[in-house]
């Protein structure tokens, strides 16, 4: 088994709110969460709202400081890394957010958006900005001729492709997708999932895929961690978590998923050979 790319060890996040008389209330959003992400694999973190999955993602991306626990990337402790070490970590770990329109600057052209990570990293774009931006757009299935357009000129699915292209600009080893396909229509969602899988197959990076939709997770994950109330209640390969769930919460979650009547679905698939 290969060395983990990323190792989260007992990650914990506590939020403290202070009352008027110095009283303190503590909320543990993430409670001692540990997992590994191996090179080239997709780890899905699933859970319902308030389960701590997004806070976990934010800690891994170093967007939120953990209250306790450690993060190791390629064997190096980066829990409190600063300066050049943190900058290098950020080049290796990129994030794709849920709402493409609020995570893309509306006043910047696609080219400027795609080149921003390179500017921050001080990496010169290969073949010049224009050529590099066009190449990235092509990789995610966007028309490279549209590099001078603004985010509002794209549909939701296309805008999410811009977000994905931006994440890929610095050749990351880990891409964190925080509900990256949740806001998309089902037909567009299927295309973006296909894109994410193709990019991984081409470039061999890892994903941490945060999602509430287990059916989507099943399409993309190699391993799954199920979170509830800040803890991982179950984690393992996708086939065993979905096929033979051990934890009662995982079973409840799987049972609650609406399914198309399987008999109707079978008849449709048998009736329409492609």
């Amino acid at each position: 088994m290969s060395e983990p790319l990323l190792r989260a060890n007992e990650l914990t996040k506590r939020f403290v709110s202070r009352g008027p008389l110095g009283s303190k209330a503590e909320f543990v959003a993430v409670d001692g969460v540990s997992f590994d992400v191996r090179p080239g694999e997709t780890l899905a973190v699933v859970g319902e709202s308030g389960s701590g999955k997004s806070t976990t993602a934010r800690m891994v991306a170093r967007l939120t400081e953990p209250s306790a626990g450690t993060l190791e990337f390629e064997g190096e402790d980066i829990t409190t890394a600063k300066g050049a070490t943190l900058a290098r970590y950020r080049a290796n770990v990129q994030v794709v957010f849920q709402d493409p329109f609020s995570s893309l600057n509306p006043r910047h052209t696609v080219e400027r958006i795609l080149m921003a990570p390179l500017v921050y990293q001080g990496i010169p774009p290969t073949g010049g900005k224009r050529a590099h931006a066009r190449e990235l757009m092509e990789r995610v299935g966007l028309d490279p001729g549209h590099s001078q357009r603004y985010p509002a000129q794209f549909s939701g699915g296309q805008a999410q492709r811009i977000g994905i292209a931006r994440a890929l600009a610095v050749h990351p080893k880990l891409v964190i997708c925080d509900e990256a396909v949740s806001a998309l229509d089902v037909s567009v969602q299927a295309q973006v999932i296909e894109l994410l899988r193709r990019l991984q197959a081409e470039s061999g990076f890892s994903y941490i895929f945060i999602a509430h939709d287990l059916a989507v997770v099943r399409q993309i994950a190699h391993r799954v961690a199920v979170m509830s109330k800040g803890r991982i209640v179950e984690q393992g390969p996708v086939e065993s978590v979905f096929g033979d769930p051990q934890d009662p919460y995982t079973r409840t979650l799987l049972a609650a998923i609406p399914r198309i009547n399987p008999e109707w679905d079978r008849r449709r698939r048998e009736g329409s050979p492609r």
């Binding site: 299927a190 993309i220 009547n261």
Partner: peptide
């Protein structure tokens, strides 16, 4: 009827939509 639309959709758009639905019970991985 729901049965007809889901088991024998007449329109290409409906078929495309049904094909896009991620399935919890099978894994394309």
């Amino acid at each position: 009827t729901a049965e007809q639309v889901f088991s024998d959709p007449r329109h290409d758009y409906t078929r495309m939509l049904l094909d896009s639905v991620p399935r919890i019970d099978d894994s394309p991985i």
